[in-house]
Amino acid sequence: MMFPSQPRSQSARNCSIFTLGALGGMMVATGAFAHAGEHSVADGALVSPSEIVDCTLETGAAAECARYVVKYLPDDLEIGPFCPATLADEGGIWHWDGDEAGVYRINEDFLRMLDEQGYTFFNDDGEVYSFDIRTEQPVETNECIQATVDTDVEMTVLIPANPVMAEEKTDLGTVAQVGIGLDGVPIFADAPSVLDTGHMPALDTCGGHIDPGGWYHWHATATDLNTVFENEGVAAECLNVEQDQTAQFGYAFDGFAMYGTLNQDGSVPDDLDECGGHIGRPEQGEEPVYHYHSGTTFPNLPTCLVGVVAQDNFSTNAAGGIGAANAGGGPGGPGGAPDFDAIAEALGVEPAQLEQAMQDAGGRNADLNAVAEQLGVSVDALQAAMPGPGQ
C-alpha cells in the first residue's frame, strides 16, 4: 500500500494497512459495480455479450477477467466539438502545459495566446489549421487534430474480476492505458503535448476524442468533468454525459473501480493515496474496498495503478493507433506518443525499462546520453531506434 499524498490520522492509516493484510492483498467487493462482471458495461457499447473468462495477470498468476468487446462508439453517446473551423468558433478543450498552463476552451483567446508563444494554429483569414489524423498528414507546423470514426473497429478489454494489489504501483505516463468506462469507452492518460509534436489532438468538452484508429476514448473522468471546469475557471460544460460527483465512472485496468470526486455520502475523501485511491464504501451498504476517485484538476484520472493488470488487456482490429497490431504515431499525430514496444524491441530491452529510463532522464526533454547509459546501449543505437520526423 502506498503512502497517501495527503495527511491523515495514524489510526486511519493503520486501518487501511490492517484491511489489506487481513484480505491477503485481495480486494474483493460485494456490490454490483465494485468489481467488474458480465453486466458492468452498457449493452449499447458491446459488440457481443460480455463474459467472465480465464486470463493471466502480468505477474504470471492465473485469474478470471471480465471480457468486453466494445464498439468504436457506444450507440447513444454524442461526441464533439473538437477543432474549431475559424477563430470565431468554439471548439473543445485542451490541457496546455506551456507558459500559462491550464485547461482552456479551444477558441480565439486561447489560440491567440498560443500564437504569442510561437505556436500558430490559424492563418491571416482566421481559419484554423486542422487535419484528420486517420486519413491525412499535417501540412503546417501547428495543426489542430481531429479524426473520423471507423465503424468497423472494435476493441477487446480484459479487466480482473477480483483485483489484486501489486507489490509496487505503476505510474501512468502519456497515453497510458487507464481502464474502461461503464459506458464501454476506453480510458487513457493525458494526450501527447503540443510541446512534443507541435500539433493539438483536441478533446471535446467531455474529455474525449477519436483515436487515429477510428474509435473514441476518454482522457478524463467524463462524469465529473464539470467539477474541473468550475475549479479551474474554464468556460466549458460537459453536456453529453450526466454529471455526478459520487457516481462510478468505470474500472481501471487493475480491476479497481473509479468514482467521482466525492464519497458516496457526499463528503470529500481526506485519505487518498498518491494514485488517488483509498479503502472505503463505494456504495451504500457495501463492504469497504479499495477504489479510485477523480481529481479536481485536469486530467482528473488516477496518476498510477495500485493493482496488477491482465496480460494482453487491450487490443483492437483498427488499422492503426493505440492497441493496433501495427500501431504507430498516436493521438498526438506523427511523432506523437512513442511506440515504446517497437523501440525497446530494436534495442533488446524491456518496454518498461525504456519508459522508466526516459522518465528518469527528463521525460519529453530526456537526455539521450543518460537514457543510453541507463539502458546499457550506445547513443547511436538509441537514436537509430527512435522515430524520426513524420514517422
Rank of each mutant, 00 (worst) to 15 (best):
S48Y: 02
G31C: 11
L57A: 12
A62D: 14
V70H: 02
S48G: 04
C55W: 02
A45M: 03
G37H: 08
D54Q: 14
G25S: 10
G24T: 05
K71L: 07
A22T: 13
V28A: 13
F33R: 14
D43P: 00
A66N: 13
A36L: 08
A42T: 12
T30C: 05
V70P: 04
H39S: 14
G44N: 08
G24R: 07
E58R: 15
V47L: 09
M26W: 08
M26A: 03
V69N: 12
P49H: 04
G60I: 00
V41R: 10
T56R: 08
P49Y: 04
V47R: 11
A22D: 10
T30Q: 10
V28K: 13
C65Q: 04
A66Y: 09
I52T: 13
A29M: 01
A32N: 13
S40T: 14
V70N: 03
G25T: 09
Y68M: 05
V53G: 02
D43C: 00
G37R: 12
G24H: 09
A61Q: 14
P74T: 07
I52K: 09
H35Q: 14
H39Y: 07
H39W: 01
G44H: 08
S48M: 09
L73Q: 11
C55P: 05
L57T: 07
A32Q: 14
V69Y: 04
A32H: 11
S40G: 06
L57I: 06
L23H: 15
A61F: 00
T56H: 01
V70Y: 06
P49S: 09
V41S: 09
A29K: 01
V41Y: 10
H35N: 15
I52Y: 05
A63F: 00
G25L: 11
G44M: 02
Y72I: 01
T30E: 11
E64Y: 12
Y72P: 02
P49L: 05
V41T: 11
E58Q: 15
A22W: 03
C65I: 01
E58M: 12
T56P: 01
P74C: 04
E51V: 11
A62C: 01
V41G: 11
A62K: 14
C55V: 06
E64Q: 15
A22S: 15
A42R: 15
V41W: 10
Y72H: 12
A61K: 10
V28Q: 12
Y68K: 07
P49V: 04
A32Y: 08
G31E: 06
G37C: 05
L57R: 09
H35V: 07
T56F: 00
T30D: 15
A36H: 06
M27S: 15
A45T: 04
V53Y: 03
